[in-house]
Structures are given as structure tokens and as C-alpha cells.
């Protein structure tokens, strides 16, 4: 188990209230999580399950109703932690009257960076997200994917140690989302910690080390992706260009060993299976923690 949790969440609950203090929604219920340095962590769940709420609580944009948060050992309300964090919001909430260069320069200034550094990083990031052709256009003219890209660039302006991405691939074209995944893996290689929410399970499966699945504000599954998806009693054999004769021969071999061939087909996105199963079960039997994973280490705290 890697040491040094970057984020520690203990019994975190959030109830949204209206103006008069009446309870509207219980968006998060007693969540406990540790996110460690250097890992890519995926937060999954259906719409409205509390993923964005969790991120906003971590950033101090919302105040918890109950529970504690520690980021780099500091409380969520401490602004100085932001020096080490990059955040890509669900929708890129940027100033639409600025152009790409001005946007990056502005956020660079908020990190108190000197002009030379700002300029250098802005150039590098504009190139990284592929907006060279639109660097002088105001953001209000940008397409959704372009807005996403500039949003990502601003999240990386300070070379953060912890990157929090709220649905990073939404709105991106296939190439864009491939690049995004490569980028996340690159960040991981650089030793950075990534916390992301996503609906694109294939993306999550590709890049995440560990995941948590939330359902209506409750943690249902927490664990390593490969362990969660490994099903012990199924063996999958993948080959390429197998002739029908060869398949028949292999079936014969399996039958001789007393096993039965369930089916021969192309493998499905198995995280999708898991996800659907969890959501389905949670709906059937509310209030039950679906699957305990070996990675939960929060109980004693």
C-alpha cells in the first residue's frame, strides 16, 4: 500500500439546503476515501450521484455538512493548497471575453508567476492542447471541445501535483479523448496524482489505477481496477485470425478437460458490466454496500 495520502476524506456528507435552510438533497453520504500520491483515481457513478459535489467539497467551493477533508495535510478551506492543485471544472467556467493567451496569462498571474514563466507555459500548453490556430480568438467563439481544451490548459498552468478533472473527455473528439488519456498517463509518469470523474468507462478502464463507484451519494465500490475486473472462474483467451477449424479443435481440447465453452465472441468493455451491475444492484437493494474491496483502509480513522 503506497503511503502518503494526498487526499483524505472521512465521513464526508453534504446536504444541499435552500435559502431558508430547508433540506433539498442529500448529495453525499458518509464518504471515506484516501487518494495516494502518484495514482490515477477514477470517481464513477450515474448522473447526480455526487461526483462533482465531492470535487467541489475538496476544493472548498462547498462546505461539508459533516465530516473532514484533508488535502496535502491541510483543510479544504485553506487557499494555499491551491498552489499545488489544478482543476478542470465540469463545464469550463472561463471568461468568455478573453482569448486563449489572455486566459492563460490571467490564471498564471493568479499563481503570482513572473511574466517570462507565464509566457513560456502558455505557449507550451496551447501547443499541448492543440489550440495554436485559435490562440487569439475570444473563448465565446470556441466550440465545446476547444473550450474543454483551453480549460485543461488552464488547469495545468501551475504544473500541479494534484490534477482534478471533472469529466475530462466530455465534448472531445475521439482523437482528443485519446490525447487526453495519453496526457493523464503522462502526468502519472511524472509522479502526479490525478483524480477524475467520468462517464466514459472505457476511458476510465484505460487510465485509472483505482476507482470508486458512487450511487446516490453513497460509496458502492472501491478498489483497484484490475482486481475488481478480474473474475477468477472465467478464463479469456484472445488470439487473432483463428480459422473455424482451429476453434473447433480448441473446443475439443477444452471438452476433454471437462469444461464447457460458454461462448466465443469479442470481449466487451468489462468495466461497463461492473458499472451496470453495481447500479442495478443498488437500485434493487438500496443502502447496501455492494462490494467490499481490499483497498478500503479508511475504517479505523
Amino acid at each position: 500500500m503506497p503511503a502518503e495520502p494526498v487526499i483524505q476524506i472521512r465521513n464526508l456528507s453534504k446536504i444541499y439546503r435552500d435559502f431558508w435552510g430547508r433540506k433539498k438533497v442529500r448529495a453525499l453520504n458518509s464518504l471515506s476515501l484516501d487518494i495516494h500520491k502518484g495514482e490515477v483515481f477514477g470517481l464513477l457513478g450515474p448522473n447526480g450521484s455526487g461526483k462533482t459535489t465531492t470535487l467541489k467539497l475538496l476544493l472548498g467551493l462547498l462546505f461539508p455538512t459533516e465530516g473532514e477533508i484533508s488535502m496535502f495535510g491541510k483543510p479544504a478551506s485553506d487557499v494555499s493548497k491551491n498552489e499545488r492543485i489544478g482543476y478542470l471544472p465540469e463545464e469550463s467556467y472561463l471568461y468568455r471575453f478573453l482569448n486563449a493567451e489572455e486566459t492563460l496569462d490571467f490564471y498564471g498571474r493568479l499563481f503570482d508567476m513572473p511574466a517570462a514563466t507565464r509566457k513560456e507555459r502558455a505557449n507550451k500548453l496551447i501547443e499541448l492542447v492543440g489550440l495554436q490556430g485559435a490562440r487569439r480568438r475570444q473563448l465565446k467563439e470556441y466550440s465545446k471541445g476547444m473550450t474543454r481544451r483551453i480549460g485543461l490548459a488552464q488547469a495545468l498552468i501551475n504544473e500541479p501535483e494534484l490534477v482534478m478533472l471533472d469529466e475530462p473527455t466530455s465534448g472531445l473528439d475521439p482523437i482528443g479523448s485519446r490525447e487526453m488519456k495519453d496526457l493523464i498517463l503522462k502526468l502519472k509518469d511524472q509522479g502526479k496524482t490525478v483524480l477524475m470523474c467520468s462517464h466514459f468507462l472505457a476511458d476510465v478502464q484505460d487510465v485509472c489505477d483505482r476507482i470508486a463507484i458512487l450511487y446516490q451519494g453513497e460509496l458502492k465500490v472501491l478498489g483497484k481496477v484490475d482486481e475488481l475486473l478480474k473474475e477468477q472462474d472465467i478464463t479469456q483467451i484472445r488470439t487473432s485470425r483463428l480459422s473455424p477449424e482451429a476453434i473447433r479443435e480448441i473446443e475439443g481440447v477444452i471438452a476433454r478437460h471437462g469444461a464447457k465453452v460458454d461462448g466465443v465472441d469479442h470481449p466487451t468493455a468489462s468495466l461497463e458490466d461492473l458499472f451496470l451491475k453495481v447500479v442495478h444492484e443498488s437500485r434493487e437493494r438500496p443502502g447496501r454496500r455492494f462490494m467490499d474491496s481490499p483497498a478500503v483502509d479508511a475504517k479505523g480513522a
Binding site: 467551493l61 499563481f111 488552464q154
Partner: peptide, 14 residues
């Protein structure tokens, strides 16, 4: 309202 302030206050801006 536009939440552009979110992006500002999640930077070290006090």
C-alpha cells in the same frame, strides 16, 4: 452565476 469565479477561487487568489 456563470461560475467563472469557481475557476478563480480554486487558484491561490484570496
Amino acid at each position: 452565476k456563470a461560475r467563472s469565479l469557481h475557476t478563480v477561487v480554486t487558484k491561490p487568489a484570496r
